[in-house]
């Protein structure tokens, strides 16, 4: 089966429908699937539920889908960098489900691993536990969290081979592997597709079984908080 597509629009062809759930990789603006997000904007698909740690910034990343009001609900751990997000949320246009960051990552991983729910001590005794089953193991309370299975996953990696084996770079890996795993279909965008056989099989971060469609493209890779030290300090 051929996984490589010429561009983001063709890679998403036939996969989109209004009201669907999408899991997106990335942390802040690091390792986000920029090209696929742009293609989602262009497609006009709407009423989306998106599971993603953050929601981009104004005018970039998932923030673009806010500008066009294509998102109905976000499942995130932190959304502080986006004025349009807050405007839509406070006006009731946008639903928001806060998940502790590790719970969100594990919900994705579990969903992809055939685990419909798991118990965690994260959030016990807080608003996060409201309405959730509490179970005591060895004298300690845990809450039940559900695995997430998304209709579609969109992720970004550094390199792929033609069979969809992925290699990530530095902290741009973040939510991409668990997001990829939890999708019924996963589309990945990479900086470079290399010939099958040229990646060391021992150095694959995410096996191609999780990746159904693949595109290569140029990424802006915007930096959210450029922080440096002066050379004189060294």
């Amino acid at each position: 089966m051929k996984k490589v597509y010429p561009d983001a629009a063709s890679a998403l062809d036939g996969l989109l429908q209004d009201g669907m759930t999408i899991a997106a990789g990335g942390f802040g603006l690091c390792g986000i699937p920029e090209l696929l997000i742009d293609a989602l904007v262009a497609s006009g698909v709407k009423n989306l539920t998106i599971a993603s740690n953050n929601c981009g910034v104004d005018g970039f990343g998932l923030g673009k889908l806010l500008d066009t009001k294509q998102i109905k609900k976000m499942m995130s751990s932190y959304v502080g960098e986006n004025a349009e997000f807050m405007r839509q949320y406070l006006s009731g246009e946008l639903e928001l489900e806060f998940n502790p960051q590790g719970t969100l990552a594990e919900r994705m991983r579990a969903g992809g691993c055939g685990i419909p729910g798991f118990y965690t001590k994260t959030g016990v005794g807080t608003v996060v536990a409201e309405g959730k089953e509490v179970k005591t193991f060895d004298g300690q309370d845990y809450i039940l969290e559900r695995g997430i299975v998304a209709d579609l996953s969109i992720v970004k990696a550094w390199k792929a081979d033609e069979t969809g084996n992925l290699v990530f770079r530095k902290t741009a890996r973040n939510f991409n592997p668990p997001a990829a795993m939890c999708g019924k279909v996963c589309v990945a965008e990479v900086e470079e597709i290399v010939p099958t056989g040229s990646l060391d099989p021992d150095h694959i971060h995410l096996p191609g079984i999780y990746v159904h469609r693949l595109i290569q493209g140029a990424h802006e890779k915007r930096i959210e908080q450029r922080t440096v030290r002066k050379r004189e300090e060294a």
């Binding site: 802040g28 530095k170 908080q225 440096v228 030290r229």
Partner: peptide, 15 residues
């Protein structure tokens, strides 16, 4: 990083 050595793929939890 030193000025000019920033890598967009390498950030901390504060971004």
């Amino acid at each position: 990083p030193f000025e000019g050595d920033e890598d967009p793929d390498l950030i901390n939890a504060g971004k």
